[in-house]
Amino acid sequence: MTARSSKPPVPSPQDAETTESDRRRGRGACSNAAGRYESERRDVFDDGWESLADLDSFKTEVRAEMARSIIATNDSPDIGFDQSINAYRGCEHGCIYCFARPTHCHLGYSAGIDFETKLTAKVNAAELLEKALSTPRYRVKPIMLGTNTDPYQPIERERRITRSILEVLAHTQHPVGIVTKSALVTRDLDILAPMAAQGLVHVGISVTTLDNRLSRSMEPRASAPAKRLEAIRVLSEAGVPVRVMAAPMIPALNDPELERILEAGAARGAQTASYILLRLPLEVAPLFREWLAQNYPNRAERVMALVRDTRGGKDYDSRFGVRKRGEGPYAQQLAARFAIALRRIGLKRDHPPLRTDLFQPPARSGQLDLFAPS
């Protein structure tokens, strides 16, 4: 005989954690703490009435934005480009290590799950780009796509904003570089292949790991490793110069794979390669530590100890020239391994410069057209 209680069952902390885990299934971040600019903190907890079970799973929300400008410029000494375009704010790939997560705090969102679920699409990007390229003061330099958030994240399948940007760049014969971890980039081969034949494009494919389990955990909605390698092959066979990017390298987690990643990329036709050491700016550090504790508890202390060894005892060092490579014995060893692997495999560090002499500005439009001869 089973005794009955008039009180509702109170779930254990473990039950509450499981329910919360179900809500964020398929997401990289384990939490959604308020950003550094917020005056209030919001916490989700079970009130004893199984309230967490009533909450829906985190859904992707996309807000259309009419941007005021589209080309971002920088003068950073350790970035190899001057101009970039990001068609989206936030990224559904959900990479736990993404250095762009803190930018979401400027929008009043969390760098955690909000970054992966509350996305913004710059729907007028192509129109703004065409306008910018038509101004007399514009000076052509390569434009990079995907420097902050991925231009081929899942919502690009329907939104097609990146494709519209490429159409403008192809029409004007403007040089462009692309960085992505999505096989969706091969969809635009009809644009990329002719541009490559003119020396106007190269593509970087980020291959963080060859381990499917690790990839699903730390970059849950990005293309699987095999799909990225296949994208390298397809692009290369179509004549598009491809860089395999072992980025980021995480000490004691995926760093043993460095040489295998470079070899796999080269076997599919990649011509150049690069790597970046794990970067943990601002909100990324606690999010990454939380993810480590939940997914790789036996390695967490070792990983963070090595990270701090490369960052002067801190989680992160933002100094130019240091933030991408780190310092100290471990960082030096990683750099040496990379250099040796390049020589052995036959990969180069850089592609030839993209051409800028073919650029044809789009025809200007506006009130002045009223006075143009018909």
Score class of each variant (00 low, 15 high):
residue 132 A to V: 00
residue 66 M to K: 15
residue 350 D to N: 15
residue 215 S to M: 12
residue 137 R to P: 03
residue 307 V to A: 05
residue 93 H to G: 05
residue 9 P to C: 13
residue 371 F to G: 00
residue 32 N to Y: 04
residue 51 S to W: 02
residue 11 P to N: 02
residue 245 M to R: 13
residue 137 R to Q: 07
residue 43 D to E: 14
residue 244 V to D: 06
residue 191 I to S: 09
residue 88 Y to V: 05
residue 117 T to V: 07
residue 290 E to D: 11
residue 20 E to H: 14
residue 352 P to Y: 08
residue 356 T to Q: 11
residue 230 E to Q: 13
residue 288 F to L: 07
residue 152 Y to L: 04
residue 345 I to W: 12
residue 74 N to Y: 08
residue 258 L to K: 00
residue 228 R to S: 15
residue 116 E to P: 12
residue 272 T to V: 13
residue 367 Q to V: 07
residue 101 R to H: 08
residue 274 S to D: 09
residue 362 P to C: 04
residue 178 I to M: 11
residue 152 Y to N: 01
residue 48 G to N: 03
residue 80 G to M: 14
residue 62 V to Y: 05
residue 365 S to C: 09
residue 113 I to C: 02
residue 8 P to N: 09
residue 71 I to T: 03
residue 361 P to Q: 08
residue 224 A to C: 08
residue 67 A to S: 14
residue 340 I to V: 14
residue 69 S to T: 10
residue 259 E to S: 04
residue 239 G to N: 02
residue 337 R to Y: 04
residue 331 A to R: 01
residue 157 R to K: 14
residue 179 V to H: 02
residue 159 R to Y: 07
residue 373 P to W: 08
residue 54 D to Q: 12
residue 51 S to C: 05
residue 182 S to Y: 01
residue 67 A to R: 10
residue 149 T to K: 06
residue 330 Y to D: 00
residue 57 S to N: 06
residue 258 L to A: 00
residue 342 L to A: 05
residue 152 Y to T: 02
residue 175 P to W: 02
residue 308 R to W: 01
residue 123 V to G: 09
residue 373 P to I: 07
residue 65 E to L: 15
residue 327 E to D: 12
residue 5 S to T: 08
residue 374 S to L: 08
residue 14 Q to W: 08
residue 116 E to V: 12
residue 348 K to D: 11
residue 278 L to W: 05
residue 330 Y to G: 00
residue 250 I to T: 11
residue 127 E to P: 10
residue 127 E to V: 13
residue 65 E to C: 10
residue 148 N to I: 14
residue 166 L to P: 06
residue 241 P to S: 10
residue 152 Y to Q: 00
residue 291 W to E: 01
residue 37 Y to R: 14
residue 67 A to G: 10
residue 292 L to H: 04
residue 344 R to T: 10
residue 292 L to A: 01
residue 9 P to G: 03
residue 237 E to A: 03
residue 242 V to I: 12
residue 101 R to I: 04
residue 17 E to W: 10
residue 13 P to D: 05
residue 80 G to I: 04
residue 21 S to D: 11
residue 31 S to P: 03
residue 288 F to H: 08
residue 118 K to R: 14
residue 8 P to A: 01
residue 231 A to Y: 04
residue 371 F to C: 06
residue 347 L to R: 06
residue 168 V to M: 03
residue 331 A to V: 01
residue 351 H to F: 15
residue 212 N to K: 14
residue 355 R to H: 08
residue 281 P to I: 03
residue 187 R to M: 02
residue 190 D to K: 10
residue 256 P to S: 12
residue 276 I to F: 06
residue 122 K to C: 02
residue 179 V to K: 05
residue 209 T to S: 15
residue 59 K to A: 07
residue 233 R to W: 12
residue 363 A to S: 13
residue 293 A to M: 07
residue 11 P to D: 00
residue 178 I to K: 07
residue 62 V to I: 15
residue 110 S to A: 13
residue 43 D to H: 15
residue 348 K to S: 09
residue 332 Q to E: 15
residue 188 D to S: 09
residue 21 S to I: 00
residue 194 P to H: 10
residue 176 V to M: 01
residue 333 Q to N: 13
residue 95 C to D: 12
residue 367 Q to W: 13
residue 115 F to D: 04
residue 247 A to E: 13
residue 47 D to T: 12
residue 67 A to Q: 09
residue 219 E to L: 00
residue 37 Y to W: 11
residue 91 C to R: 02
residue 41 R to N: 04
residue 269 G to D: 14
residue 374 S to H: 10
residue 158 E to G: 13
